[in-house]
Nucleic acid binder design. Structure first.
Lengths: 190, 190
DNA sequence: ACGTAAATTCACCGGTCAGTGTAGTTTCAC
DNA sequence: GTGAAACTACACTGACCGGTGAATTTACGT
């Protein structure tokens, strides 16, 4: 009984998101995803040409919501230092939720580090570039010398904080990252 | 023909190190490791009780060499800011080698993020704590207020830089991390 | 009412996975 | 020279892997 094609496809991606994000890429089978989506494996392969294809789509689907959440965390009031302080504070809180497992893009890149042309690596790179672009625009509006370098350093702080929190399961690394961000932003003002 | 038991065990760990670090944990089979080590699978299971056991040993074996390399990169001359600048410069250079694939501990933690009691997570946590301890001692010798927070922030910068370089395959993130480290270290001097 | 394309199902494939069983071999310390 | 530790060889298990073939059901334009 054919349903709406796009709806089914989205259900599959939603199921993949839950499973991939919580358990990792290699640890989740196509069978498990198909079952969670309430679909046969053949239907899965009707919508996606391979598991790797799905992995790429899973990350693509995560891109916008993630960037939007980041923007929401930072807010739009105050200096960049204020906004980043808020951001890291919200990150710290969010990371204590029971389902938080770090950054899905970072974890995908970690699993597929040697698969140089993999669609997931492209998706992860694109997503990180979009985050960095957002930071760059924010920093560039204020008077900073070398906004590019500062935006890159802020990206380093974000992914570093996420990684440390994931390993230690301790939100205090978000606080330290916030401190580093404030130091960074208070120095190079033009 | 029995060799020295420890020698064989080390060969297996060495084979695991090469394969796990380059391809990831789930992507490498016990058969592949046994073959690379020049050992039958039965011998493998004589030395390790399971694949998960080996994964823990693989990370344990990486701990000291990694910390030693970090210390060597930083050197012992100059201020902490100088040493961290040197460190990030060396990290940037090293990351451009053809076999570099980020931090094995971080990548292991990324793959096993949901396996809460896994020996590999314990090993990764212990290793990161040792790195942080080294940074803390270094920072604490200089006159800084809140050396603990600064050491944590430096850890955030290191793992953040490694993550960003892994994703973009671009060493400039090490430079940005170095800049952030200098900002951080120039502010809180007592 | 009919044809057709999209969407879906069930059964199945060859291969690989972690791990075991059985049976025998080699070295070395005592 | 005996016994234990350290191995080899290799077949095997049962579960699961990604992916497929052939048939089927529905919606829709005509």
């Amino acid at each position: 009984m054919p349903r709406d094609g796009l709806l089914t496809r989205n259900q599959i991606v939603a199921a993949a998101d839950e499973l991939f994000y919580s358990q990792g890429l290699h640890a989740v089978s196509v069978d498990a995803i198909a079952e969670k989506a309430g679909v046969t494996k053949k239907t899965f392969y009707y919508h996606f040409k391979s598991k790797d294809d799905l992995i790429g789509c899973y990350l693509d689907a995560r891109d916008r919501p993630t960037v939007d959440r980041f923007k929401e965390w930072a807010g739009s009031e105050g200096s960049v230092a204020d906004r980043m302080t808020r951001f890291f504070s919200k990150l710290g809180r969010s990371s204590q939720g029971p389902r938080w497992n770090g950054c899905g893009f970072l974890r995908a890149a970690a699993e597929l580090a040697d698969k140089r042309g993999h669609p997931a690596l492209t998706a992860a790179r694109t997503h990180k570039a979009r985050c960095e672009q957002w930071l760059f625009e924010m920093v560039n509006e204020e008077d900073h010398s070398d906004a590019e370098t500062i935006a890159r350093a802020l990206m380093v702080l974000i992914d570093g904080a996420v990684s440390q929190i994931l390993i230690h399961r301790d939100a205090k690394y978000a606080t330290s990252a916030g401190l580093a961000a404030r130091s960074l932003l208070s120095r190079g003002r033009r």
